[in-house]
């Protein structure tokens, strides 16, 4: 490869990198961030083990085990999670209402929830889009494993009607 070609490759690479960086910055300003995606109300759809130390373990989590797992967590048993823009999270169920604080870490892949008692929990955001959210967390209850929580976004109109 001659010097002229090498110079051209260096120039093109540098231009691509700089353009890529500019596009990245613009994207972060224009595209919907995970923070904006998560705001609103989410309904719990399912709880199941994503991975378990026991291969023969049933992946579906029963209500009894869910109750037991929730005793260890600050999220307790909630059916609807309402993420407010100010950083508050309202957890509502038929029997209980609770308010927590939420924030995101990393590149928006970690959901941090904190309780008034200063207890903090982290959930891995596996999927987050306009309709669906999937959270993972590790648990030691029953069989050590990763729990997968799936949520469905409650559209504003439906939620207003429901209320």
């Amino acid at each position: 490869m001659n010097i002229k070609n090498s110079n051209l490759i260096v120039l093109i690479s540098t231009v691509l990198l700089v353009v890529g960086f500019i596009i990245s910055i613009v994207n972060t300003m224009v595209l919907v961030s995970p923070t904006e995606h998560i705001e609103g109300s989410w309904k719990e759809i399912s709880w199941e083990y994503e991975k378990s130390e026991n291969a023969n373990f049933d992946k579906k989590i029963s209500n009894a085990i869910k109750t037991e797992i929730c005793k260890e967590l600050i999220i307790h048993e909630a059916e609807v999670w309402n993420f407010l823009s100010g950083g508050n999270l309202e957890l509502t169920s038929d029997t209980n209402n609770e308010t927590l604080s939420w924030t995101m870490k990393g590149r928006g892949n970690i959901l941090e929830l904190s309780h008034k008692t200063n207890k903090i929990e982290h959930y891995n955001i596996q999927v987050l889009n306009n309709d669906k959210m999937v959270l993972y967390f590790s648990t030691d209850i029953q069989a050590k494993g990763i729990v997968k929580m799936t949520f469905e976004k409650i559209k504003e109109d439906n939620y207003a009607q429901k209320i």
């Binding site: 990198l17 890529g20 960086f21 596009i23 990245s24 910055i25 994207n27 972060t28 595209l31 919907v32 961030s33 995970p34 590149r107 928006g108 892949n109």
Partner: peptide, 13 residues
């Protein structure tokens, strides 16, 4: 996930 990809690209840059 273009938002997250953009953030990570900016970090590498």
């Amino acid at each position: 996930n273009w938002y997250q990809a953009s953030v990570v690209f900016a970090w590498i840059f």
